[in-house]
Structures are given as structure tokens and as C-alpha cells.
Simulated scan of single mutants.
Amino acid sequence: MADERRPVGALEAEVLALLQASGEPLTAGEALRRLGGGLSYSTVVTVLSRMRAKGLLGRTKRGRAFAYAPVADSHGLTARRMRRELESDSNRGAVLARFVQDLSSGDEQLLRQLLGSDSELDITDGPSTG
């Protein structure tokens, strides 16, 4: 069906996953070809532009076009979203207190370890809790 629409944010998530998996910046045309059918060039350009405005993507000039790449890996992007949410509330202390209060015991322990570390953190393969 031509009127079938993706859920809100699904196209952004798809484009972000594509850019993260590509390992190199992609132009709108390259992204369009890799995404497959059903999208117009202008839709891809719009999505890339909006994602750049949100701070998710950077861009560099490539010939007459721009090539886009994520500004961080998936963990870094999640951390940026968390920081943006924290910064959107005037009472940061209350937000942080509630956040810590709602953590699982494993996540709380991990956070304590991270905050208590005097050395540089190895975040590439850090422990994860579920």
C-alpha cells in the first residue's frame, strides 16, 4: 500500500543504524540506495537534516553533496539523550536522585564503581547489567 507509513522515529532509527553499520559517511543518495525502495530523495535529505539538527549526525562536504555520519557510537548517543533530558529540568538534583533511586541494584553498583574510579574509565567493553 502506498499510504503505509512507518511508526514515528522508525525511519530515523533505520537511517542511524545504516550510518553506524556503514563505517563511513554517506551522502543522501548513497543512503537512499542502501535503504531500498519506497523513499524519495527529498525524504532522505529531510531525515538526515533533522537528525543533524538534533545533534545525532555530523556532515562533511563531498563534492556537491554532504556526507553524514553519527557523532558518536550507539552508547554515546544514548548518553547524549540522557544528558539532554537532565539538562531540560531546572532541578537537576531531584532528577538525578530519582534516577538513582529507580536503578536496579546491579546498575546502582555499576554507577558507584564508575563514580568511585580515579583512573580513566575503559568504556569500550565496560560491564553491563540488565
Rank of each mutant, 00 (worst) to 15 (best):
P25M: 02
G9D: 08
A17E: 15
P25I: 03
T43F: 03
L32I: 06
L35Q: 14
L48F: 11
A28V: 00
L39M: 13
A31N: 04
S49L: 00
T46V: 07
L18D: 09
R33A: 05
Q20S: 12
P7K: 14
L19K: 08
G9Y: 02
T43R: 06
S40I: 00
E12M: 09
R34W: 00
A17N: 13
A31P: 03
L18H: 08
V47A: 03
L19R: 01
G29I: 03
V45S: 06
E24H: 15
L26E: 07
A10P: 09
L35E: 10
P25T: 04
G36L: 10
A31H: 01
G38V: 10
V8Y: 14
S42G: 12
R33Q: 04
L26R: 03
L11D: 06
Y41W: 07
L16K: 10
T46H: 14
R33T: 01
Y41K: 09
L16M: 15
V15D: 05
G38H: 12
L26G: 00
P25D: 01
L39P: 04
G23Q: 11
L35F: 11
S22F: 11
R33L: 05
V15L: 09
G9R: 03
V44R: 02
Y41E: 05
A13I: 03
L26N: 00
P25G: 06
L35M: 13
V47I: 12
R34H: 07
A13W: 06
L18W: 09
P7T: 12
A21S: 15
V47N: 03
P25A: 10
L48S: 09
T27Q: 01
